[in-house]
Amino acid sequence: MGILVDRNTRVLIQGITGREGSFHTKLMLEYGTKIVAGVTPGKGGQEVHGIPVYDTVKEAVEHSGHIDASVVFVPSRFARDAVLEAIDNGIKVVVVITEGISVHDEIAMVNHAKHNGTIMIGPNTPGVLTAGEAKLGIMPAHVFKTGYIGIISRSGTLTYEIARELGKKDYGVSTVVGMGGDPVIGMNYIELYEHFVRDPETKALIIIGEIGGDAEERFAKYYVETGREKPVVAYIAGRTAPPGKRMGHAGAIISMGLGDYKSKREALEKAGIPVADKPSDVPRLLSEIL
């Protein structure tokens, strides 16, 4: 179970012949992900780790029967084109790993996905992992034990750090979703929380946020309005970040009067969501609400 992807999800890798695409295809296969095809324009006819490569998504879909999801490793300048190609060929889940995409391209991609009923994760995400079933992305699989905690995160390595802390106390995960570190992303906390609420295997959620934007504040409001359906614990990074500076992620910036730590923490706590002072406190807060 879990959300978005499982062991039956048939996966396409866009940019499969590139360094990252090829390397992570191997790791995803080792995890058990059902990768059925890859696409790199001009490289059709090759194979990568036994997976057939096509020139276009259309050919990949035609030859592989059916494709449920795509993982995009295409370089930032060509990512918009690749994502639109996936959406227009009817793929319903598109996970965009690529970092550094133009925000204008992101706006075009996200809106096109919405208009076509496609779930787009990222860009600038470590991907999605349903424990023991499928990994669509670049997360180091060994830090995630199988269990009943869902994770929604804006950060990669911080997710691994917190997953490891959870593992030390024997908490495993159902599905882990990296939302992406860019200002404009396909799915936010609210939309992903909705999926987790419907998943019987997820008993509680962890939200890993950071400064920038107001996604955490909006989620807090939504969480209360919808009756706090599942328990949530949060950690927010960037308490010491100065305003007006981009902290690594394009989206991690306090600007236009939005996005500071205090506002996020207060909104979450007011909604009844405990906020951990540090990553190693997350398991304790979780044990207190379960």
Partner: peptide, 23 residues
């Protein structure tokens, strides 16, 4: 490595009473 972990490390330094010089 990683923007989130870097910010979390800065915050941890402040939590234990130190002052980060940079991100």
């Amino acid at each position: 490595n990683g923007a989130g972990l870097t910010m979390a490390t800065m915050d941890l330094v402040a939590y234990y009473g130190g002052k980060p010089a940079n991100f």
